[in-house]
Amino acid sequence: MPELPELEVLRRQAQKELVGRTITGVTVNQPKAINLPVDDYTKRTEGQTICAVERKGKYLALILDGGDALVVHLALGGALVLMDTAEHDPPHTPFVFALNDGRYLHAVNWQLGNISIYETSFLRAPDGPFGQLGPDAWDEISSADELRDAIGGSSAGIKARLMNQAVISGIGNAWSDEILFHGRLHPMTKTSALSDKDFDAIYRAIRDIIGAAIKAGGEGFTDLHGERGTAEESFAVHGREGEDCPGDCGGNVEAMKVAGRTGYLCPSCQKKR
């Protein structure tokens, strides 16, 4: 599932490649993946120029000059890929956007994702797609103190809080595993039991781990140019059940269920409190 690093890679590429491009045509093959009737959707999209690209958490917004925004949510998977051809496989391509430079923006291998259109002013409204999210873990949390204020102290485990998009946005199952391993914190540790030192460790891990993941192109993620990221090659624990811990503890990586997801940890390094 694409998380913050993957969407940030896409945002940076889209900022360079899509801003200033006009959408000259739209093909919708999966009407359930949009929030309006197809005719209304195309009328509000065609002829509009992309003037900015924004991201919050796992959402991307293409800001249009007519006052609307196309909000992209990749959900369980999928990619936006620029191609020189409009040819596509409809069952696996829910959208194709024709651009005025002769290229086509394809949505491919979609898994429950959507591209909805809203008035730009609604983006950050309390019930808007950005407004419902907690502060972005990369762009809007600039210190350990701000991280502590966002997460708070409760009986909830730290992994569940990191994955709760209404608390802090952008971090999901994979990267929370990596962040907590590097911070040497057990996923089930109650946030009320975390010290200032713990929050500092989590904050530093977010900056280091997410930053490196962005540079590597994300985790198994197909970017705007059709190239695949390699960040998963540096995973210390996620998806590595039974393997030796990459630390010096001599333990093994184990899997456990947390908030309905399968997470990974080294119980020798990440002791539960």
Rank of each mutant, 00 (worst) to 15 (best):
K16E: 15
K16T: 15
E17D: 12
T22N: 04
Q30T: 11
P31W: 09
L36E: 07
P37M: 05
Q48D: 11
T49A: 13
T49N: 08
V53T: 10
V53A: 09
R55H: 11
K56Y: 07
K56G: 05
G57S: 06
D65Q: 01
G66T: 08
D68Q: 11
D68I: 05
A69T: 02
L70H: 04
V71P: 07
D84V: 01
T85D: 14
D89K: 15
T93D: 02
V96K: 10
V96T: 09
V96F: 08
H106V: 02
L112E: 15
S121G: 07
L123H: 03
A125H: 08
A125P: 02
P129E: 04
S143A: 14
A144Y: 09
A150P: 05
A156R: 15
A156G: 04
I158R: 12
I158T: 13
A160D: 06
Q165L: 10
A166L: 02
V167P: 03
G170Y: 02
N173F: 05
W175M: 13
E178Q: 06
L180V: 10
A193T: 08
Y203E: 14
R204E: 14
A205G: 00
I206S: 10
I206K: 11
D208F: 02
A213Y: 00
I214W: 09
K215C: 07
G220P: 00
G220T: 02
E227N: 14
G229H: 00
T230E: 13
A231F: 10
E233N: 13
H238N: 13
G239I: 09
D244W: 01
G247N: 04
G250V: 04
G251P: 03
N252F: 12
V253C: 03
M256K: 05
M256H: 01
K257T: 12
V258W: 01
A259N: 13
G260T: 08
T262E: 09
P267C: 07
K271W: 08
K272I: 14
